[in-house]
Structure formats: C-alpha cells, structure tokens
Design a binder for these strands. Structure first.
Length: 736
DNA sequence: GAACGCCGTGTTTTT
DNA sequence: CACGGCGTTC
C-alpha cells in the first residue's frame, strides 16, 4: 500500500487535533473531552510518526485500556498505513508486560510458560493460604484480603514493603497471607494479573540492562485512557519513557471512574509537574452530542472539585432538552422505557440498535429484561457474567493450562474432580501435602498415588487413571490443532458426558458455551496455522470479553454505566437516578461522590441526540423496598435544559401528589416545555394496540381486540376462540 | 463423598 | 430476590 500523503493524514482534523498529531516529540498531554475525536488523534498520530517522522512501527508502544480497543486501534492504523503497521506494539499494559515477561521470565526465576491467574484464581489461592495459616475466614474474608493484596501490588509494594506500612491488626494478617500467597504463586509458576505489572517493574529495577534494552527500543510511547492508570502502570510508563521522553498520554480527568480498583487521577493531573516541558493540548470540540446534552453534562461535572477546566462545545445544534421522568417504581420505570422505545420507533423511525439503557448496578437489568421479553423488544446485554468466567469455560481452560504448565496446582485442583471422579477435598489435600513434601507437581504426585498413605484405595485408583488420561492428552496435544485438543479434553475427560447426563436447561447452556469455546479455538487455529497450545492458553488468559463480533442487529443495548465508557448511542436512557442507587449508597458513605458524578458525566456524554433520566419514588432492590429521593445529579441539571414529566400510576391517580419529592424541581426548575404539562398527567402509554398479535404463556396465540383504561386489554385467543380481559402489568403476555 | 438446605450478604470491572 | 458458602445428613 502506498504511504498516505501528509494531506490525507491531516485532513479532517481540527486545529488542536492537528497539533496533537504533528507534535514531533517530547512529553505530550492530550486532554480529550468526551467525543472530541480522541481515537482519531491517537491513530493519526501513530501514522504520522511512522509516515512522516521516520519512526519504525516496532519502535512504537501504544497502550490501550482493553484488548478490544487495542484490536480496533491496530486496525485503524493499518487502514492508514497498510500491513507494515503490524509490527507495532499495540496492547493493554497487561498484554505488553506479559509479552516482555515471557522473554525475561528466567531472570526472575520463573519459567517462560508461567500461568496467568485471574481474579477468581487469586481468591482461591488466598483461601488456601487462610486455611494453612489457620485463620478464621469469617474475620478474614478471602475476597477482602485479596483486594488488599491487589491494591498493594498496584502500588508496587511487595509483601515485605507492605508489612512495613501496616497500622492495624487486619493489615498485619494480610501481610502474612501475602507472603504465603506469593510463595504459592511462585511454586505454581504462576503470576496474577497484578504481578504482570509489578514483576515487569521489578525486572527493570533489578536488571538495568533489560530496562535499557526496552527503553531504547520504544522511541514513542502512547497511552490511552491515562486517567485510569494505577501507580504500577505509571511507573512503567516513566521507566520506559525515560530515555526518549516521547511520552504521549491521552485522557480526560472527568472520565476517571476506576479509582476503586487502583486508578489514580493524580497521574493525569500531575503530568505537567512530572514533565515540566510537556506540551498540553485540549480537545474541547465535541462531534457527538447536541449542545443541550453537552451543556447539561458540563453543568453536572462542574460541581466536582479539582479538575482540569474544560468546556465541551459542539456545532451540532441545540437539540432536544434532557428528559427527566419520575415513575412510581421499577416496574413503572421499565414500562416507561419500553414505551418510549416503541414510541421512538413508531413515530420517529429510530432503530432499536440506536438505543442504550444504562444503570448503576447489574441487578437493575432484571426487571427491564422481563418486560422487554414480554413486549418482544430485542435486547442485548454488555457485561454481566463474562464468558471466560463461566465455570465450564474455566474448567476447560484449566485442563489446557495443566497440560501446558503441570506445576499449576490451582488449575489442577479445579479439574481433578470435575467431572466427579470420587476425589473429594480430603483426597486433594492429601495429594497436595504429598506433592509439597516430595517437591513435585500435584499431577506427578497423582501418578504415584499408590505411595500416598492417607488415600483410600478408590481414590488411588481414580487418581492414577486421571494421571494416565492427562498424560495421553498431553501426548496427543503436542501435534494437534488446539481445537482438536480441546474437543479431546472435553470428551476423554468425561466432562461433556457428565453435562449431557444432567438433562437440564442449564447443562444444555453449558454445553453450548463449550461448543462456542471450541469455535474460539478453531478460529485461533485458522489464524495461527502453526500456533501451539501454549500460545493459545497464554493469549486467552489475557482475553476476557467475547462479545466481539456477535453484535445483534436492531437490538437495544443494556449495560452498566461503567461499561458505557468509550461508546456512543443516538438515544440513551439512564435509569435509577436516585439517591442510594446512583449515586450508590456506598459511594455516599465513602464520600466518593466526585467519582459517581464523573460516572454520571460519562453516561450523559454517550448520548448523541436524546438523553433520558428516570427515577422511581419507590424501588425494590435486593428484596426490600426503598423510598429514595431523586438523585442529586438531577438537582444539578439546569431547568432550562430539562423537560420534566411524571408518570403516575393509574390505580392511584388521585392519591399521592406533588411536593413530596425533593431533588431537582424543588427550586422551581421544572421546564415549561409546551406539551409536557399534558404528558405529565398521562398514564403509561399502552404497548398493545388493537390488532396486535400476541402470545400468552398459557392461552397461546391471540390478537388484541380492545384496549381499556387501567391497563387492561381484551384478547381473542385462537386456540379456543375465547376473548379474555387481561391486566397488561400482570398477564404473561408478549407481542408475537 | 455428595446432596440438600440454611444463613448471610449484596457496587462498579479489566486485565 | 438470588446466589454462594458452609454445615448437616444420607
């Protein structure tokens, strides 16, 4: 492919964007407001460096927040430069570190086939440690301990250094667990996610020649989402960039929403102090949202304390006011959202695929899902339980990991009795003791089960069989494509057989997931014709989201506000805007409201054309009913940008009333907006219209013959020709 | 060793 | 409400 001309690279950029792209070198901070073309700047800058500055692709290290973002960025640069771009390092911090550590592991006493443990594995190891140390898991919950260890690692404190910082009894205990935990990881030839960062820093500190090697190599370092980096990542950037000082960081302090997992906004706020000679460029022109949405978002975020001042503007026009709707409860909320979605589709031709609903906690999605299913509105959920976190996938992967790294006792323990082989906790413990004493892996110990005194004969037999089976699998794996190995594992282990024997819907689902996993392996084999099981396992353990290409067309998108970062939709609903839900009660206790407000800002700025907020006067969450005030964030919205509406339940039409609700309209800020007053007295719009074809859970197919007041419809059922009156809210009725 | 049932608990999530 | 962890029972 021909090199792009400079004109091509620089066309369609506004002035600050252009400056950021052509900045020749040195530290550069790009403060990129939401929707300001950040990705465009990043990709064009990389292309510019290579095409116009004589930088070689493999001298560029570009860091993204997710694997998905890395793939997208690579593709975009490739479309500008052609295949030469392939040698660039574009990845997450974790993937880049893993790549470095695979090369350098021996320096740290690890073997290069080390296993990477995810959060679940980490907690398992912590539990083992607690047991061995005789600690009460009630007083010292594994999850809590793990999170303290993790945050210590993110601050680059090893067990010893952490031990010196302790100021309470709990941390004292954590320190002893931490020490043992790390010992175990090392014995298993395993690193956890945090280790990938910490060990790499460790490598660079202890072996200056290795640091020098990589410093020289990376002439340019670019970091996206810099506001969400933690201390370890900060150190990596600083160490690697020290030689050339060509560090370009891109981010938005107003979108920092991950402090609870170690991200430190100070990294971006202090960049100018760290690099006094840094160029700072602000991108404030927004190409995504209407002015009304932007102004509202600007006002909300302006309530935060320390921030780098920034004011987004757009020339896309004023647009519609932000709609704020009070509903009775979570069911009314769901009905309202579904009703608006139908209305938008019918009256304005807005496709379902253009609509997203954001909520603060995953639990909020259920009620909405139930209703969407009933109304026959297609939806997809982003996030939730991850594919690679499902038990069956982790089991399958654990088999592969043991084949690949037999020292990995965590994976071994996971699969040795899965499917059930009559090897219970007691036998596993005996095996572990033996392996430890003999200084061999648990897999090797299983082969010598006969030598272990505490095992019952049945367990010995079973372990020996297991060991032989694994040896066979390892032999077969050596020369087979990954997908074949995986299938062999699933059948020969009896895993699939055990699942199909269950004959439940859940088991069916699990089998389907496993088939999809085989599909992933096949895909891998196709791309890497000479790929090995080792590479597959190593790659997959850093990859956690699978919803890659499976985008369902014409479905509305449901996700948490955190998952919404980086996305955009013409229509956005933010539901559950209530004190205690959003902002979340726990953030309120911890005085972490600034971050909640940033989360609100992130959510609002995802909307291109229309933005809706809903709040319920009462909500059932976690099985108990709450009466919440409207979110303070709504109170912060300026009245002239808002259209307020109140959906009142048909049953209590003359009950209840105004005024009880504190929050955003108690300062008389309610919008005047023409027809809104009329809308506020309306009942929930009906989803069913005369003539609609419907399906009832017990009566089967039918057609709507009448729509009555109070949420009642008449339905003629084809099965027996009967006509029945049904309450829409309670009848198991959906559109056909 | 496994199945059942009780109790407690409950943000956000990528790697 | 819903799930996971743990203790009891067969």
């Amino acid at each position: 492919m021909a090199k792009p001309s400079l004109d091509q690279l620089l066309s369609d950029l506004n002035e600050p964007q252009r400056q950021a792209v052509v900045c020749p070198g040195g530290p550069l901070l790009v403060l990129a407001g939401a929707g300001s073309g950040k990705t465009r700047v990043l990709t064009h800058r990389v292309a510019f460096l290579i095409a116009a500055q004589g930088v070689k692709p493999d001298e560029v290290l570009a860091i993204t927040f997710t694997n998905k973002a890395a793939v997208e960025m690579k593709e975009r640069v490739e479309s500008l430069l052609g295949p030469i771009a392939r040698t660039m390092w574009v990845s997450t911090f974790h993937a880049a570190c893993a790549r470095i550590l695979r090369k350098e592991a021996q320096q740290l006493g690890y073997r290069r086939n080390f296993t990477i443990y995810d959060a679940g594995d980490q907690v398992r190891v912590v539990k083992q440690c607690l047991k061995e140390l005789g600690l009460d898991p009630k007083r010292f919950p594994a999850k809590g301990i793990h999170s303290v260890i993790s945050s210590a690692k993110n601050r680059l404190l090893d067990a010893e250094a952490f031990g010196e910082t302790i100021n309470n009894f709990f941390d004292d205990t954590v320190a002893s667990v931490y020490t043992l935990y790390q010992k175990k990881l090392f014995a298993n030839n395993a690193m956890d996610f945090d280790d990938l960062l910490m060990r790499t820093v460790d490598l660079f500190v202890r072996f200056p020649d290795r640091l020098e090697h990589y410093q020289r190599g990376f002439r340019h370092i670019l970091v996206d989402e810099y506001q969400d980096t933690n201390h370890a990542q900060y150190m990596l950037v600083n160490l690697l960039g020290r030689e050339h000082r060509n560090i370009c960081v891109v981010g938005d302090d107003d979108q920092s929403i991950y402090s609870w997992r170690g991200a430190d906004v100070r990294n971006i706020l202090d960049f100018k102090q760290d690099y006094p000679e840094a160029t700072v460029i602000k991108l404030e022109q927004n190409y995504r949202s209407t002015q009304a949405i932007l102004s509202a978002a600007n006002v909300v975020i302006s309530n935060n304390g320390e921030r780098m001042s920034k004011d987004l503007w757009t020339d896309l026009g004023e647009g519609e006011p932000v709609r704020v709707t009070e509903v009775e409860d979570e069911h009314g909320e769901a009905r309202y959202v579904a009703g608006e979605i139908s209305r938008l589709e019918q009256k304005e031709g807005i496709d379902h695929g253009d609509i997203a609903v954001f909520y603060r906690v995953n639990a909020q999605s259920r009620v909405l899902e139930d209703l969407l299913i009933r109304y026959g509105i297609p939806y997809r959920i982003v996030g939730g339980t991850k594919f690679y976190e499902r038990a069956e996938i982790k089991d399958a992967l654990a088999y592969l990991m043991v084949l690949e790294n037999p020292s990995d006792s965590v994976s071994f323990s996971r699969i040795v009795n899965s499917p059930k082989r009559g090897i219970g906790a007691a036998s596993v413990a005996a095996l572990a003791r033996f392996a430890e004493a003999a200084g061999i892996s648990m897999l090797d110990a299983a082969a010598r089960a006969g030598d272990i005194a505490d095992l019952r004969p049945a367990a010995v037999k079973s372990l020996e069989n297991f060991s032989v089976r694994m040896a066979d699998l390892a032999g077969a794996a050596a020369n087979s494509p990954v997908a074949e190995t995986l299938e062999e594992v699933l059948t020969s282990s009896g895993y699939l057989e055990a699942l199909s024997a269950e004959r439940t819907v859940e088991a069916e689902g699990r089998i389907e997931n496993l088939q999809e996993f085989v599909g992933v392996a096949e895909e891998y084999d196709n791309i890497h014709s000479d790929g090995s099981l080792r590479e597959f396992v190593q790659e997959i353990s850093l990859y956690t989201d699978i919803d890659k290409l499976t985008e369902v067309e014409r479905a509305i998108t449901l996700m948490t506000l955190h998952n919404a970062k980086g996305l955009e939709f013409p229509v956005v609903f933010i539901i559950g805007a209530e004190e205690g839900v959003f902002p979340h009660s726990r953030s309120m206790e911890e005085q972490n409201l600034d971050e909640e407000r940033r989360l609100c800002y992130v959510g609002m700025t995802r909307a291109k054309k229309r933005l809706y907020f809903t709040y319920a006067t009462t909500r059932n969450l976690y099985g108990s009913r709450n009466y919440n005030l409207a979110s303070r964030f709504l109170g912060e919205l300026p009245g002239d940008l808002v259209a307020f509406e109140q959906i009142r339940p048909a049953r209590t039409r003359f009950g209840g009333g105004f005024g009880g609700q504190a929050g955003f309209f108690d300062e008389g800020e309610c919008a005047e907006g023409g027809n809104e007053a009329e809308a506020s007295l309306n009942e929930t719009p009906s989803f069913f219209n005369v003539g609609d074809k419907v399906v009832h859970a017990t009566f089967g197919e039918g057609v709507i013959t009448g729509v009555e007041r109070g949420g009642t419809v008449a339905v003629r059922f084809s099965v027996d020709g009967s006509e029945r009156k049904l309450m829409v809210d309670y009848a198991p009725l959906r559109k056909a």
